[in-house]
Structure formats: C-alpha cells, structure tokens
Design a protein around this nucleic acid. Structure first.
Lengths: 301, 301
DNA sequence: TGCATGATATAAATCCTCTCTATGGCAACA
DNA sequence: TGTTGCCATAGAGAGGATTTATATCATGCA
C-alpha cells in the first residue's frame, strides 16, 4: 500500500460532500462498491481512518475533516486552471503580442487587427512598434508572439511567412512636378541630382533603397533623413526633394495631385512583408488565429 | 477521450519542471513512453497542446504554462494536507478537548494529562471544567472529545468506560473530633444533628449524597452549601460541621490530623468515575491515546 | 420479535487502462 | 554520414479498478 492514485481524492471529495458512499457513486457514475474500495485504498495508503461508517451514511473523522479542507481547496484550484485553459482555447481570454513598423501597422496590420478584435474582444492586444531588427530581437527573446517584418529575414530561429507585396517609389511635390510629368523615365544617376529624402539609417527601407541605388551604380546620399514616413511625405510635398516611400502609403496624395511619382528608367523591385514567429515555441492560439486572418487579408488583396 | 485521470497531472507537473519526458520518467520511476502516453492523454482530454516537443526536451506552450501555475499550487496544497494528516497521525499536531469537574481534574485527570503532555507536547490541550451534565452536553454537541463523568450516565448517544472508583465520606474538624474517635459508628439519623456541609445543588455529588441519605430514611438538609470541595474542606476544618467529600480528596488532611472521618453505621457505597465520548464519531487519535493512558493509570491504582 | 428498508462491506470475475519492451523517426553535432 | 539524445508509436501484457452478486448491520415499524 504505497502507490498513490489521485483519483481516490476525487472520490473522497464527493463522498465527504454527500456524506454517503452511495450518493457519491451516483454522482461519479460508478458503483457503490467501487467507491467503498477507493476510500479504503486511500485510508490504507494514508494510514488514517477518514470516515466513520454510520448506519445512515458516513461522516468525516477529525482527521478526515482536516484532510478535506485541503483537498477541497486543491481541487478548486485545479478546476480554476482547467476553466482558464478552456477560456484560452475559446479565445475568451489570453493575449496577442504583435510587433510591426509604423507604416506596416497602419496599412497592413490594422485592418486585420480590427477584425480580430471584433471577433475576440476578450483577447488583450499588445502592439509594439519597432524596426524589423528590433521586432526580430523581441521575437527571439519571446516577448512577442508575431512580428511583421520586411523580407528577406535571415534568422534561423524564426519562421517567416510572406504575406504582402509592397512597391516603393520616389515622389516629389509641386516644385518638381515637371520632372515627374515630362514623359521620360528618370535614370538612377539623375536621381542623385535631386535632394533625396530618406528614412533614417538602420531601417530596412533605408538599407533597401541604398542597396538598390548601388546596383544602379549610384552612391546614395541622403539630404534629409527622417524617422517616419509621414514626415518624409510632408517634406516632399513642400518641395524639399524626392522622397523614397511605399506607394500604398501615398496613394491618397498621388490621387489628389499633391504628390507626383517619378517614372524610373529601371523599376524598383517589389519588396515583401511577412509575418515571423519563433520556430521553437508553438504559437498561442490567439496568434495562430490572427495569422490566419492576416493570410486571408493578404490573399484577398 | 473524456474520463480524467488525475495522475496525469502529476506526470504533467514533473515533466514541466524537468523540461524532459525522460527525466520526468526517471523521477517518477516509470518509463519514458509511459510519460509520453500520459501527457498525450492529458492533452487530448483537455483539448489543448501543453508542450512543444523540441529536439532537446519539451517546453510548455503558453496554454501549458497557464495550466502549470494552477497545477503547481493545487499539488502544493494537497501535499500540505497530507503532511498535516501525518502530523495528526504522529500526534505532532492536533488537539485534545477534554472536560471534567474540578476535583476530578485535580485527582484523576492531571496525572495522566501530565504524562500525555510530556509525551506529545505539540498536541494542544483544551480543558473544560464543568458538572457532569454540562460535560455530557458538550460531548453530544461535539465540542468535547472526552469527558470524565460520574457514573452511571444514562445517555444513549454517549459511550462510557468506567475507570476509577471513589469513596465518599463525612469529615469533621477538631471541634467534632470526639464524635469521630468515639469508637462507635455514627448512624445516618445522627448525622442530621450535625451541621451538614454539602456541595451546591446541581452537582452529581450533591444528588448522590441526597439519594444515599434518603435510602437511610433521612431528609438531607444542607446547612452550608458551597461550589467547590476546597471550600467545604476548609469550613469543616474550622469546625462548621461535617462535610461530604471524596476521601482521596482529603487524604493529606486525614493523615495530618486536621480532619477526621466519621465512622458510619451504614457504609456509603463507592461511586465510579468514567470517561465518556460520543458514540457516533470515532475518537481523534489524540483522544484515543489519552484514553489509553487514563485506563493504564486506573489499573495501576 | 420479525420483517422491510437502506446503508456499507466483501468476494470473485471481468474488463480496461496503464505500463513495459522494442523500435522508429528526427534534430543536433562532430 | 554516423552518432547521440530526444520523443513517438506499436503491440503485448499485467495489474488494478470496476462490476455483479451477496453478506452484514442498524433502524424503524407493525
């Protein structure tokens, strides 16, 4: 008599509550002798008499009462744990920790995030803004579930799924309108004659444009460096030069005639935005579900 | 997949702690496939993936982590409960609730209680003084484990075990010395010529002496009524009359010549003191043990 | 008393679940 | 590419829990 079977405690609990082996058996959907047997096992294992057998049911001994207080608490906590788990499963609890860069948040994340939040309002959303490098760092250390990053991302610890294709371009304001609407494509070398408005060094967009210019045999030199695309656009509009931005980001301004895209002799290759997560850990259900939503949004685009 | 086996949680706990099925298996003295099987059962039953299987062991998923916090607490409480129970079993915890009347406490309870307390200093002793009627009431309502009472006790709910035999007597002080030492036994009728010092009405000793006097054809009439035997003895010593007391209670005074026992024509029948407990509930271990000690003391007397 | 009732205990057979052994698969590492 | 260290799977087997049937005991009632 030494190996413990925790099921005995459940039977003990039901028996103590109902004060009857027979009733406990009914509630547990087993037979009365089975309950009798289990209680006996438990008593023998613990070396203590837990119930007094009366003519009309059973009642806890003092020792049994002492044990009962603990067992009841213990099971209450276990039940709470299972409830909590079910909540997480049904997405009526939990959190979604996601990171992305500013422009990506506004143009690619928000639409899906709105849908997700509407569908699962009880899931807490933690949104972090940052550059691709920062995002991937937080993914690795496990403080983010998902991150939207610029591809390619060479990190063996992260799994990446491509989602959206984005197209970059150079835009200018009224001041350089003629250049944009001359009808002739602008060669890369001629771009350098213009003041260039670029994102600050360190961003993957900056690295991308520098790389592209280099393949065109041109050394990039930024005249104005800004941290956010919003600001770039604003400066371009005011005629400070040509800003390198995502086309989708300035769609309204292009349509409204406040900005003009420079036609290029050599097209800028499209870039991909993807969603990354840590390979090692499986995704929390909330993140899993959100990724599905993102993928749906990407397809329908 | 629906019936729950709580053993799975234990295995879950060990696995989560060690981060390895293999290590958990070693600690639990079972094989690795057995752990693998149990975890799978638990996951299927809960409908949630609890561990990520890595190349180097396993690690909790977010859901698993959430569950773990609860399971750990739950088991800690259960362990505490088992520890507490073992303490009660070893009498390194618990309490002994006992009741008796004043004289009984001093002369019959204390010697055994001293031994008990020396043997089990961690058992809290709750001692209640009261008349037999009060004691038996508290026994029935369950607020006492044991009660030392005067026999016979006619209560179907209480189990009684006779222990000590006591002998009552009438004692007088110096003032009535001649009566005590005249060599002639004193008849009951002559007792009433003396001032009688009796315990207050309501005590079983008072009932007993009244009953005895009545069998002798004498109407008892107390000249002095006091609540405690100590006081009776004191008054008798000062010559106020004849006090009805337990002989063992005045052994020292009789030996020292401060009190004198009246020889009676008709002997007072001995009374029995017993220990009573509720029939329905079994005794707590502490009470059980103490009763053994009481019985030993009674035999060796 | 004697009988019916309602509770737990016991016995023996059965069934099922868990455990084991053996083996496969997979990733990391040298 | 072989080796090592993990976990998963398959199949067989054992042992314990469950069931059915029955005993036992206390209680209440005629």
């Amino acid at each position: 008599m030494q190996s413990m079977n925790l099921e005995w405690y459940r039977i003990f609990l039901y028996t103590a509550r109902s004060g009857s082996l027979t009733k406990a058996a009914q509630q547990l959907h087993i037979t009365q002798p089975s309950v009798s047997y289990s209680i006996k096992q438990l008593e023998d294992t613990l070396g203590a008499k837990l119930f007094d057998r009366l003519s009309k049911g059973v009642s806890l001994t003092r020792e049994g009462q002492s044990l009962y207080d603990y067992v009841e608490q213990s099971f209450a906590i276990l039940d709470a744990g299972e409830k909590r788990l079910q909540s997480l499963q049904r997405l009526t609890a939990g959190e979604l920790r996601i990171g992305a860069s500013g422009p990506v948040i506004r143009h690619m994340l928000l639409p899906s995030l709105d849908r997700f939040h509407a569908a699962y309002p009880d899931v807490r959303i933690r949104l972090t803004q940052g550059k691709t490098a920062e995002i991937s760092g937080k993914l690795q250390e496990g403080s983010l579930d998902l991150g939207m990053v610029h591809l390619p991302l060479a990190d063996p610890e992260l799994a990446v799924r491509p989602l959206f294709s984005i197209q970059d371009c150079f835009v200018v304001g009224e001041a350089y309108r003629k250049l944009a609407q001359a009808g002739r494509p602008v060669a890369a070398i001629r771009l350098t004659k213009l003041p260039l408005l670029l994102l600050s060094p360190g961003s993957s967009t900056r690295r991308f444009v520098e790389g592209w210019l280099q393949t065109q045999g041109v050394a990039a030199e930024a005249d104005i460096e800004l941290g956010s695309m919003d600001m770039l656009v604003e400066m371009a509009r005011r005629g400070y030069g040509a800003a390198f931005v995502t086309r989708a980001f300035v769609r309204r301004e292009l349509a409204g005639g406040q900005l003009f895209e420079l036609p290029l002799a050599e097209p800028i290759p499209p870039r991909m935005i993807g969603v990354a997560s840590r390979k090692a850990a499986s995704l929390p259900l909330a993140a899993e579900r959100f990724m599905t939503m993102l993928a749906e949004a990407a397809i329908s685009e």
